[in-house]
Design a protein around this nucleic acid. Structure first.
Length: 164
RNA sequence: UCAGCCGGCCGGGCGGCCGCUCCGGUCCUGUCAGCGGGUUCGCCCGUGCGCGGGACCGGGGAGGAAAGUCCGGGCUCCAUGAAGAGACGGUGCCGGAUAACGUCCGGCGGGGGCGACCCCAGGGACAGUGCCACAGAGAGCAGACCACCGGGCGGAUCCUCGCGGAUCCGGGCCGGCCAGGGUGAAAGGGUGCGGUAAGAGCGCACCGCGGACGCGGCAACGCGGACGGCACGGCAAACCCCACCGGGAGCAAAACCGAAUAGGGGCGGCACGCGCGCUCGUCGCGCAGGGCUUCUUCAGGCCCGUCGCCCGGGUUGGUUGCUCGAGGCGGCCGGCAACGGCCGUCCCAGAGGAAUGGCCGCCACGUUCGGGCGAUCCUCGCGGAUCCUCCGGGCCAUACAGAACCCGGCUUACAGGCCGGCUGAUACC
């Protein structure tokens, strides 16, 4: 790397996207971020993926949104420093239409905030819940995985996510 | 100068910083087949095919529609024995171009425009079936409402001695069935004269229509036209007829590699309709039945229930397919043209949660606001309107839109701009 910026990995597998979708979220008008700690996955630092759905616009506009987010993510990761960059985290940035016209500085700021929020462990408090989780996950977790709405609706289902 | 028609082309440029991908080269490096040397037989050293990783240098990197996926091909797999019998789908003036087309070019016919030009799903209605709503009397081998005419019947008035006649009336009957009124998208040629009870191609003239035949053209078709008294309506984006074309599925095709579960193969056990055969075995052959054979039919081919064991092997990941092609550009030649031939020259995206970009600065044209000079028009004037040009400020690089195996077309979307040719007005010479 010439500029001294280490490359940020890219998520290319569908299962990784699905896994990230279950993690913490962060919303602005320009984007939605989803992230998870890759404690079981392959080694390496921060990885990002991009999703822009068809409802945001035509292919040209979606390409532009993704490209702006890509550069914004690179810059934000560089600013964040090695501590955050080397964390084994998958972050999926879902672009929205406002990312097309927003100022670039605003976009970088959005991504920086998103990295900060999303890369935190999912359950910062009450580790005792972890014991209850596997039992419930075996029973209801299957159903929750198929219908995200049901899992998200249960307020207690969200915090005891993972990582120990 | 204004209005318009046709064709072709572009569809941001320059610069700075950062980044992505592919190809080539150099260097460094990991692994390592092989080879050479050494060895205390553990291995070590050197070289190094191949497969990677990194740095640097050089080069390439979205569109005219990449889009819609509507046609035509290449390519891949499946099927392939015949008949092309039927069915289905498509095309539809003629000739040409092309690998092919529903595309293109040149003609023809019809329609529109003063014109340059533009538009047309444009075969067949004596092969057959069917439809022609509403309105209207009548709509397919047509019809008679009003009105018209003729002949009877009845009544009234007048003339007459009378017979009878004339006129009128309305009612009814028979006939004429043409023109007129009226209906309709369409009413069985038009105009005029003759003719007639009234009329009518009933007759005649001109026009229109049909048309043997002749001439021109490869043809569609055009020109002329004896003759015909006029008859033969429209709809085939209604069925249909005719001619021609058409196997199916698609790069998530397809091939190879690597890992877990089904189908598949082999062996064995059990089960197995009918007939025949014998060396009579739970054997062989044939028939029947069912299924498959990528629309059907015929022919042909293949398969057959269940349990156990063994063998062998999908989607998804990687590699290939994957970019040199009916290719681009230039010149010459042939052709009205589409296009073709020859020569020269160039290599021009190959991604794959998907590269070809992100950010910033400057520039144009527009547009808008303010001000100034000028011109024209309205007005007595103040003033107002329009246009041109100059200065300053604001907005601002902006349309439609992103390759996904590749070509040829079509269709649709599109800010702004450039070039060429042509037409009609007007002005000047």
């Amino acid at each position: 790397m010439t500029g001294g910026e280490p490359p940020v990995g890219r998520i290319t597998r569908r299962p990784d996207y699905l896994a990230a979708a279950k993690g913490r979220r962060f919303h602005t008008e320009r984007l939605t971020a989803q992230g998870r700690l890759r404690d079981d996955g392959p080694p390496g630092g921060l990885r990002v993926g991009f999703t822009v759905t068809k409802r945001e616009g035509h292919a040209t506009e979606r390409n532009r949104i993704r490209r702006r987010l890509k550069v914004a993510a690179q810059i934000a990761a560089t600013q964040a420093g090695p501590a955050q960059r080397d964390k084994p985290v998958d972050v999926v940035l879902i672009g929205r239409r406002d990312a097309l016209s927003a100022s670039f500085a605003q976009l970088v700021d959005d991504v920086r905030q998103a990295l900060g929020v999303v890369t935190k462990p999912k359950v910062p408090r009450d580790p005792s819940k972890d014991h209850g989780r596997p039992a419930r996950s075996g029973g209801r977790g299957r159903g929750g995985a198929r219908s995200p709405g049901g899992a998200g609706a249960a307020p207690q289902g969200a915090p005891p996510k993972r990582n120990s």
